[in-house]
Design a protein around this nucleic acid. Structure first.
Lengths: 195, 195
DNA sequence: ATAACTAAAGTTAGTGACTAACACGGAGTG
DNA sequence: CACTCCGTGTTAGTCACTAACTTTAGTTAT
């Protein structure tokens, strides 16, 4: 159970982490300033004061700088904690809402900017779907473990539909310039799944 | 209402269409032979006896050779023909099933090979999601037009969920080496959306 | 039929994402 | 203090894709 705020743990590692953070910050700044496609890896590297190679040592692709993907394990944990009598879909809905609530309360602005960047950049959007597929598999497994079933087609569909609902809500949220209440949008999106 | 089988319509156009077809055939052959990532555009061009530039004159990206996307307009037409008293989800289910039935009856083997190639190649899978997003918008619009509503969040979620169900069914179909009855899988996938 | 028009295809020379191979230098360890 | 390792820089590539220009060949008009 290693919570964040790990002790300094060695100068070398700290420097590495620092480099990584700097690259990511500069990348996001440049992407927002001049657009994703108009920004080259070389520019990012120069802004972070490293060589282009170092960029790829920390991030396998240009797209991967934008991702976070710290949510998946959190949501899986939340699913495990849902009462077992809940339907899979309800468990997913509550777990996703809980997970979102935290981010929404503390980092709403950052979430908005990042989401808009992703949804308006084709290359990043494509990457997003790929990640969703991985997330879908994790959710399916978590759901299957919860009620003893094996990960069948139906659970897969449920997980995929839940993620589709979440994405649709995020899309509408961004299209409305972030003025709507995101949790309410998510709730409405999930409502469309129980006709 | 130009049905296929258009008259020859000029030597130049025919030659162009022929070149395009050759490129696509050779590309698919090479992809299946040696894998997508191990095949370069230059190889495809050489196999089709054209220059690399010509490849990009016919297909904007290497990924786009694999797509067909002739389904979207067909499905939209099928949606418009569904009886108006059907729920949006039911209309989608029937339209997608009808559209699939045609391909499944005549081109099952080709559908299987192409689907497996896409689902097992990360770059193509990413592209698939992108296309699904476009499809989702068309379906949402079609659904909205059907029952006079405006394209709200709920319809978007419905369309996205339906596509997720279809994709899940296709995935399971491919994982089972194409031995299952695809329409039945689709039916089961949609069943998961009515709990 | 031949000349004039035009669109498809080739050629060349790039950019940018990403990789492999090797060298350097400072952080970790005895 | 020496020795090892690991993060980084350098160089030289490959491959997808683009732009500018030329060549070739189908089409059209004289």
């Amino acid at each position: 159970m290693n919570r964040p705020a790990r002790p300094p743990a060695g100068l070398r590692e700290r420097k590495k982490a620092q480099t990584r953070r700097t690259i990511q910050e500069q990348a996001l700044r440049l992407f927002l300033d001049q657009g994703y496609d108009n920004t080259t890896v070389g520019q990012i590297a120069r802004a972070a004061d490293v060589s282009s190679m170092t960029f790829f040592r920390h991030f396998p692709t240009k797209e991967s700088v934008v991702e976070s993907d710290d949510y998946d394990p959190l949501v899986v944990r939340l699913i495990e904690q849902r009462p077992p009598e809940e339907t899979p879909l309800a468990a997913l809905r509550h777990a996703l809402q809980e997970g979102l609530a935290g981010v929404y309360a503390t980092d709403r602005e950052a979430l908005f900017v990042r989401t808009r960047l992703i949804l308006t950049t084709p290359a990043l959007r494509a990457r997003l779907w790929e990640n969703q597929h991985a997330t879908e598999e994790m959710l399916t497994t978590a759901l299957a473990a919860r009620c003893g079933q094996e990960p069948a087609l139906r659970l897969r569909v449920t997980a995929a539909a839940a993620l589709a609902a979440l994405t649709a809500a995020l899309t509408v949220w961004v299209e409305g310039d972030g003025e709507a209440h995101l949790p309410a949008l998510v709730e409405e999106a999930f409502a469309a799944l129980r006709p």
